[in-house]
Computed example of a mutant assay.
Amino acid sequence: MHIDLTGRMAVVTGSTAGIGLAIAQGLAAAGAHVVITGRTQARVDEALANVRAAVAGSTLTGLAADLGTLAGAQRLIATIPDADILINNLGIFEPKAFFDIPDEDWLRFFEVNVLSGVRLSRHYAQGMARRGWGRIQFVSSESGLQIPAEMVHYGMSKTAQLAVSRGLAESLAGTGVTVNAILPGPTRSEGVGDFFGKIAAEQGVSQEQVERDFIQTHRPSSLIKRLATVEEVANLAVYLASEQASATTGAAMRVDGGVVRSIA
């Protein structure tokens, strides 16, 4: 299968590192013009340099804005008024016991992880529908199906993304615009790596040992028995953005290493 996205404009939120950066690189390699976004210009510039080094001749635009806010979303829309592909990857996570999560954290997780995608999808989907082609994705998580006790607020936001994704797909029925969610499992992203690295330093063990212990203790149903790579997750996102995925919409596509114990 050859995926060709030449001529397509793709916006990837939260794409200066981790899964978002890997998706941006994958889309660029397929020929798309990719808009890389992050909160600071320095991080955006670094990501642009990384993708250009990895994908010769890539066509890229960088934008520094906090897309977890209304002002940030408005800035992106004003700069990039139309897109063919929207990857709502922006997200935050934080392990915290349920009884220690204040109202402010619940609201912050909902605004960053859910409303950021709602705002951008509400704008870009209308243009996609008028043109008769588009791809929207929400990067959710297996935690949206199996709520982790150690971060219920995060799981809540990921479940909400699944509801928004399916509802938007229903709203766009017959337009040529597909909307899907992807559900990564534990993935060795920058944020996760930093988190495990801190634990490893505190415990005086290797990060690899911390990762193995996490899978064994917290995600024992994993069938691959390891963290996924960001590239493994990005491969699914690039496929769903392609012409070849035109019959896949309204779906929650798992790339979770088999963590979710379900045949559906």
Rank of each mutant, 00 (worst) to 15 (best):
V55A: 08
V55H: 05
V55E: 07
A56R: 14
G57L: 10
S58K: 05
T59D: 11
T59P: 02
T59K: 14
T59C: 10
L60M: 05
L60Q: 11
L60K: 06
T61C: 12
T61P: 03
G62R: 13
L63A: 06
A65V: 12
A65Q: 07
L67P: 00
T69F: 04
T69Q: 04
L70A: 13
G72T: 03
G72K: 03
Q74H: 04
Q74G: 05
L76K: 02
L76F: 08
I77Q: 10
T79C: 06
I80S: 00
I80G: 01
P81T: 03
D82E: 11
I85T: 07
L86M: 04
N88W: 06
L90D: 04
L90I: 00
L90T: 03
G91E: 05
I92A: 04
I92H: 02
F93M: 13
F93V: 11
E94Q: 12
P95E: 11
P95K: 10
K96L: 15
A97N: 12
F98G: 01
F98W: 15
F98N: 12
F99N: 13
I101M: 15
I101G: 07
P102V: 15
D103G: 13
D103M: 14
E104N: 12
E104I: 13
D105V: 14
W106P: 12
L107M: 14
R108K: 15
R108G: 12
F109G: 10
F110N: 13
E111A: 13
V112M: 02
L115C: 05
L115G: 02
L115I: 09
L115D: 05
S116P: 02
G117N: 08
G117L: 08
R119G: 01
